[in-house]
């Protein structure tokens, strides 16, 4: 929680810089911070830069607070289609400013949840990029190019986050306002000794067959913890959910190690 708050602040300081405003703008910050606990928010238009960012990694280059879309295209004034997130205008094709209230699941038209049922995520991702990618707005205004750069980068991040189960789990928690300290050492002796065993087994594995066997073993364990995250998240048991994420991280690393050796 605290780390993304800081990042948000750094985003805000960028914003001050863009507008050549003094850093006093931070005055609005304390009140805004209260908002952060009320995530997630309904799907509405961006009401300016006081809205906290649900994700830490990408923060807006700048946000035209005077240009809040109000559900209408900044260029042609056409109303947004309610059925889909308003990233680009259906009528004139203009790329819209980033609306941080649209979460990554909404971008891909998915129910917010861990067990997403979608075999066409990549297709949807590519469809968005065909509408948003800066290469395709090369001849448009500087303003729209900036929108495209921001939107495209955000959709890149969204796809990366949603497509992998581990990062999807972390993101879901973040939407719930819980920061997962993934790197925290788990003080579970059983797990730590298991990790040691796995490491030894990987080192000693003589051929690719043995490695593959090991890989599928660990994958099963990863799946088991992935399921336990799903259950914990459903009953809003966040401590248990964090515990599952940390274990998934350990097994994920182990799988990476094996792939490196394969």
């Amino acid at each position: 929680m605290s780390s993304w708050r800081k990042l948000w602040v750094s985003g805000l300081s960028l914003l001050c810089r863009r507008y050549h405003l003094p850093p006093d703008l931070h005055l609005g910050l304390r009140s805004a911070r209260v908002l952060m606990c009320s995530l997630p928010r309904p799907f509405t238009s961006c009401s300016g830069h006081h809205r906290p960012f649900p994700e830490s990694r990408v923060f807006g280059r700048f946000c035209f607070s005077s240009e809040s879309s109000n559900g209408r295209c900044w260029n042609c004034g056409a109303a947004a289609a309610l059925a889909e997130p308003f990233l680009s205008c259906r009528a004139c094709g203009s790329v819209q400013p980033v609306d941080q209230s649209v979460d990554y699941f909404q971008i891909f038209g998915l129910e917010k949840g861990y067990d997403i049922q979608d075999d066409n995520l990549e297709g949807k991702y590519k469809d968005w990029q065909k509408k948003l990618h800066p290469d395709l707005v090369h001849l448009k205004s500087e303003k729209e190019k900036t929108f495209a750069a921001n939107q495209s980068a955000r959709v890149n991040d969204a796809y990366r986050t949603i497509s992998k189960s581990l990062s999807r789990a972390v993101y879901l928690m973040r939407l719930e306002g819980v920061h997962v300290d993934e790197e925290k050492t788990v003080m579970d002796l059983d797990l730590l000794s298991e990790m040691m065993e796995i490491r030894e087994a990987v080192e000693e594995a003589s051929d690719s067959h043995a490695l593959r066997q090991l890989q599928s073993q660990i994958k099963r364990k990863f799946e088991a913890w992935s399921n336990s995250f799903l259950e914990a998240f459903k009953r809003k048991d966040f401590d248990d959910a964090i515990n599952s994420i940390q274990r998934m991280r350990y097994y994920d690393r182990a799988i990476e190690e094996i792939i490196k050796k394969l």
Binding site: K6, V9, S10, L12, S13, C16, R17, P23, H26, L29
Partner: peptide, 16 residues
Amino acid sequence: LAGVVLPGTQNAVSPF
């Protein structure tokens, strides 16, 4: 882009 962010006060110390 780089700059100092103060833990505790949440403020960017100076422009990035």
